[in-house]
Amino acid sequence: MRALIVTTPVPTHFMPLVPLGWALRAAGHEVLVAGQPDIMTAVRSAGLGGVSVGDWFRVGERMRGALKDGERAIDAFGRPEPVTEFPQIWVDHSDSVLPDYLELARSFRPDVVVSDAIECNALILGGTLGIPVVQYRWGVDPLSGPLRAAARTALEDRCERLGLDGLPDPALLLDPCPPGLQLPGAEPGTPIRYVPYNGGGTTPPGLERAPRDGLRRVVVSLGVRTLALNGVPHVRRILHAFDGLDGTEALVTVEERYRDEIGPVPDQVRMIDPTPLNLLLRHCAAVVHHGGSGTAMTATSFGLPQLVLPQLADQFAHGDQLSAAGAAISLDTAADQDDPELLATSLKTLLTDDAPRESARRLARHMARMPSPTDVAADLARSV
């Protein structure tokens, strides 16, 4: 079987698909990833074959360009309104890459197309070639169903030109959320176990072991764009919330270029280079993060309570659902995220109360019982 993986041009949108790609490869199937240059480093790091299509998309630059001077992401974007229109940026994106995707697909002749859950080009590819499309949710999913509905109108004429009656639905929608975590109104999906993969890398020296003297280790991972989109003061406030939190060691992933501006931090805070999150959490007691799906799902798979500080898009949904499940505290306004006392109190609650820890472990147990990517790959091969 040949599988063509197509994703939106954001590396973190591609990474959840990697374990399924590995499972297909291990079963002897041919796997090829097609995407814009933005994801090619991530493709190579995952050990999968890829073809670069089109120009750079540079989502980070686009987001920074939308901010006014001094404006933060949570102020500019914040909790999103329900999706009713397919954004013009994705219509333009389809126009720019779909012809090349079609040419590549006709040459590669896949038996199945696999994509993330908002890549509508994959649905057009599958419909045009007459093959099934498998879409993979990143996690808690408020976006894919409404976006697909809006895309039917926005891309209708493009589908007609290719001989399609309209934008097809996916043949299979894979859902890595354990029972009780997905949004109640979300379209039902087929369960697949979330296998943590946050990119290639190595564990910093000493962090492969449990912290000394029974210290509670907390990892602060705010995503690849939080500093660029929210500025240093936001991150500095989070780090200073650890001041006076006895018996705690905070590991914070921060690029070297920001550290001088952040300035002195509490003694129990250690800044380290960006590191794949799955390499840091084995000896961890809690995670502080921005609500990104990869971070939220990885922390959930390790059974860890979470302090969620969402900034935009589906990050709020991850905070909401993890909080509703009892496994997290979500501070979803700029005022709350800037309140040092509230940050410190929330951290202390996650580290000392049994309820969040037990709820997080329950979610992890449910996740571990879901069908593995190997199982799903085998089912997929039998069905195409």
Rank of each mutant, 00 (worst) to 15 (best):
L343F: 05
Q182D: 08
S293T: 08
N230S: 15
G244F: 14
A228H: 10
A355H: 13
G145E: 14
L104M: 12
S323K: 00
P205H: 13
D375Q: 15
D332W: 02
D165K: 11
V114E: 02
P110T: 14
L331R: 01
S293D: 12
P82M: 04
I39M: 08
A250L: 07
V59H: 11
V287T: 09
E341N: 11
L309P: 09
I192L: 06
P191E: 01
M40E: 14
I329V: 15
V265M: 12
G126C: 11
D379E: 15
R25P: 09
R382G: 12
V6C: 08
L67E: 09
V18P: 02
A296F: 01
G201T: 05
A250S: 05
A122R: 05
R236C: 03
R137C: 01
D55K: 13
L129C: 10
V33Y: 00
A149P: 08
R369M: 15
A46C: 06
H240M: 04
G54T: 04
M370W: 02
P371S: 03
R161V: 09
V384R: 11
G145T: 15
F108W: 13
R64E: 14
P211R: 04
L380N: 06
V219R: 00
V59S: 12
P211L: 04
V218T: 12
L162R: 15
A46I: 02
G294L: 05
L167T: 05
S372T: 15
R382M: 11
A335Q: 14
L173T: 09
H318P: 02
P373Y: 11
G28S: 09
G185R: 13
G47Y: 07
A364F: 06
G292V: 00
L147F: 13
L147K: 02
N198L: 04
A360F: 06
P205E: 15
R362Q: 13
L307H: 00
A149F: 05
G70L: 09
E358A: 15
V219T: 06
A328E: 02
D92R: 14
I5M: 14
R2P: 00
G244A: 12
H289P: 02
R58W: 13
L239I: 11
G185I: 05
G126P: 09
R44L: 10
A42F: 01
V235W: 02
V10R: 07
H13P: 03
I124Q: 09
N198M: 12
T203K: 10
A66L: 12
R217T: 07
L123T: 00
V220S: 03
G189Y: 00
F57L: 07
A42W: 01
I238N: 08
D314C: 00
Q36H: 13
L172N: 04
G130C: 10
G47L: 03
P205L: 13
M297Q: 10
